[in-house]
Design a protein around this nucleic acid. Structure first.
Length: 266
DNA sequence: GCGACAG
DNA sequence: ATCTTGTCGC
């Protein structure tokens, strides 16, 4: 698929000020409320043949499960990134594509999409299936200007998106995020470093997996809305797509595929 | 000057 | 993100 908003395609040649200005424009276009064709309850559930046939018989139109894409990146060297996309439908992988693109700028907190966005959009250009939702590795609305990687790419493609990060970029957890039980979530509120009004819930710390004994423990994922999804639904979707691992399946498989693709490319 | 930060 | 074997604990 191609960008719906070419003017938002990340341009690494912009000055830092211009990049930040673009992020403010993107945040204005971003929709942080639900506007997606995906039901959190049945997103990643595999349906048996009997159920599939029953559904097709009872409805007039096509009601196949939504297509969810997991996106992740790996690096070949300091100036080339590999983006890996794994598309899933009804709990099964339906397509895997990858693309290589130059990383024109170094990693700068808050400007990640300008470093990795090019490779990601190149990956989407290779994608054949029509995605209904995408999970990105990084933040969405949990960002200084409410335009993290997931929001930037989501708005550019006008694709419902969710940001799944392993660490908190900014914002303040409303309560301690340790010692959570699987399924738990703690709101992340905006503070003075975020453009949103103080106290706005910009995301959630989501415990997708946890050990039961007091020794080892798993840190929660930091989930935020990318585009056309609310913070609550973003958390629901991540939990719904998690299957015994810390990362939701689409992301976990994209992670693995990124390494495979990296080993393949020269 | 202090603080501080996705991948 | 990346460099990387063994190893601690379920």
């Amino acid at each position: 698929m191609e960008p719906v908003h070419p003017e938002f395609v990340p341009d690494a040649s912009l000055s830092r000020e211009e990049m930040e200005a673009l992020q403010r424009d993107i945040a204005e276009q971003a929709v942080f409320t639900d506007d997606l064709p995906v039901d959190p309850e049945s997103v990643c559930h595999t349906r048996d043949a009997g159920q599939q046939r029953l559904d097709e018989t009872e409805s007039t139109g096509s009601d196949e499960p939504p297509t969810v894409v997991g996106v992740d990146q790996a690096f070949l060297d300091d100036d080339r990134a590999v983006s890996a996309l794994v598309a899933m439908r009804g709990g099964e992988v339906v397509e895997r594509v990858h693309a290589v693109a130059p990383t024109e700028i170094p990693y700068i907190p808050g400007l990640l999409s300008f470093r990795e966005g090019g490779a990601i959009l190149a990956g989407f250009r290779e994608l054949t299936v029509e995605p209904d939702l995408a999970f990105f590795d990084g933040s969405g609305r949990i960002h200084f200007r409410e335009a993290g990687l997931a929001t930037h790419v989501g708005v550019t493609l006008d694709l419902p998106s969710v940001g799944v990060a392993k660490n908190l970029l900014c914002g303040t957890p409303r309560a301690p995020t340790d010692g959570l039980v699987e399924g738990d979530r703690v709101p992340i509120e905006s503070n003075q470093k975020v453009t949103a009004p103080d106290g706005t819930v910009i995301g959630y710390a989501v415990q997708t997996r946890q050990y039961d004994s007091p020794n080892r423990h798993v840190n929660p994922l930091i989930v935020s809305a990318g585009h056309r999804v609310s913070a609550e639904t973003a958390a629901d979707l991540v939990l719904a797509c998690s299957a015994g691992y810390k990362l939701p399946e689409p992301t976990r498989l994209a992670d693995k595929y990124a390494d495979e693709a990296k080993a393949t490319v020269t």
